[in-house]
Amino acid sequence: LPEAFQVSVPMRDGTFMALDTTREAWTSVWPSWELNLPAGSGYSIYNLFGIAILFYLVKVTIEGAGGTSQYMIQRFFASRSDRESGLLSLFWTVLLAFRWPFIAAIAILGIVFGTQSGVIEDPEAVLPIVINEMVPIGIKGILVAGLMAAAMSTFDSTVNAGAAYWVKDIYQTYINPKASEKTLMAHSRWASVILVVLGLGFMLLINNINEIWGWITSSLGAGLLVPTMARWYWWRMNGYGFATGTVAGMVAAVLQRLFLPEIPEYFAFMIATSASLVGMIIGTYLAPPTEEKVLLEFYKRTRPFGFWGPVRKKIKGEVMEKINKENRRDIIATFFAVPWQVVLFLTGMAVIMKRWDEFAWLGVILLALSTGLYFFWFRHLSTEVKVTD
């Protein structure tokens, strides 16, 4: 990268504005607390960049505390033990570590192209322009095929999961419990078609990816965060609480989009999560508790920490001591795992950006965190606590 160059940001009126920046500002691992993006830019909500980072840290922490969900949980259902689930998590994180250097490489190539042929106005056009103009034939085909495969694998998993929600969780559970396999298959196919059509129709209403992505992840998706997390840590949580919390959060997100579309993502997030929390608590207490037998079986299998007092009393004292020890170890491991993942991603990006000074100390930190993660998590994967009583 040159020492100084220009990048382009989209404006709310549909135009674009070129901004001056520097190599140091672009490649530094330590972000600025504040940015100076123009007020009319679609990215101006990130001017308080430090707050935005803290917001995403809180959001991702809540997501992580709730465990995996949606279509990704299918991968963990296929594992046979805690050890396999742990290894799957490790493998998945390592695979994700290749994504961020790839994104950084595309961004850098886009900047280089801009210095040679003029700044790329639309940030969403950087990827196709880089692939078309700067990637050699052969590699270009492999890259496009890989991107299409990644997109399709996510797309079909999402569609299949959405159809399964309708067929298994709604239609077969509440509408037609005695439905035949042929009927269920028909509903699955029609649900898949309807989901795709709705998605394509919704796409026509969106001006740019950044606009809708922020709302989906920080507002609409926030309706799921609180119920998804509470199901692991609160014994009183039940299906009705999960449903009402999710619906309340999503309704609040839609209303926010209609009446307060310009507010920052972190305010939208707080609106959706607050509504979700209130809805979840109301729905939970309006319905009876889950059967004790079900709760006990769930606790024996998952052994979560949190508010499980009435269930814990049913477990033998010596077994609970082992579970408490396991819980404490997992909590400590979390303080190694989260920064380990961030540093792993940043280390690869430092290589792409040729910031060898930052790569050196990131490597040292990564090694230290890996050591802690090994002693508090990895080596204990085979010592799963078995609750048999």
Results as ranks from 00 to 15, higher is better:
221 G>L: 07
223 G>P: 07
223 G>W: 05
226 V>A: 11
229 M>L: 14
230 A>S: 10
231 R>L: 01
231 R>K: 08
231 R>Q: 03
231 R>N: 00
233 Y>E: 01
233 Y>A: 00
235 W>K: 11
235 W>L: 01
237 M>A: 13
238 N>E: 08
238 N>P: 12
239 G>A: 09
239 G>K: 13
239 G>T: 06
241 G>V: 08
242 F>C: 04
243 A>E: 05
245 G>W: 04
245 G>K: 01
248 A>G: 05
252 A>K: 14
256 Q>W: 08
256 Q>H: 12
259 F>L: 15
260 L>G: 02
263 I>M: 15
264 P>T: 02
267 F>D: 06
267 F>R: 10
267 F>L: 15
267 F>G: 00
269 F>V: 05
270 M>V: 13
271 I>G: 09
274 S>L: 15
276 S>P: 04
277 L>V: 09
277 L>I: 08
278 V>A: 09
278 V>P: 00
280 M>F: 09
281 I>M: 11
281 I>D: 02
282 I>C: 11
283 G>L: 06
286 L>N: 11
287 A>H: 12
287 A>D: 07
287 A>L: 04
288 P>M: 08
289 P>C: 04
289 P>K: 09
289 P>E: 11
290 T>D: 03
291 E>G: 10
293 K>N: 12
293 K>R: 05
294 V>N: 04
294 V>F: 03
296 L>N: 10
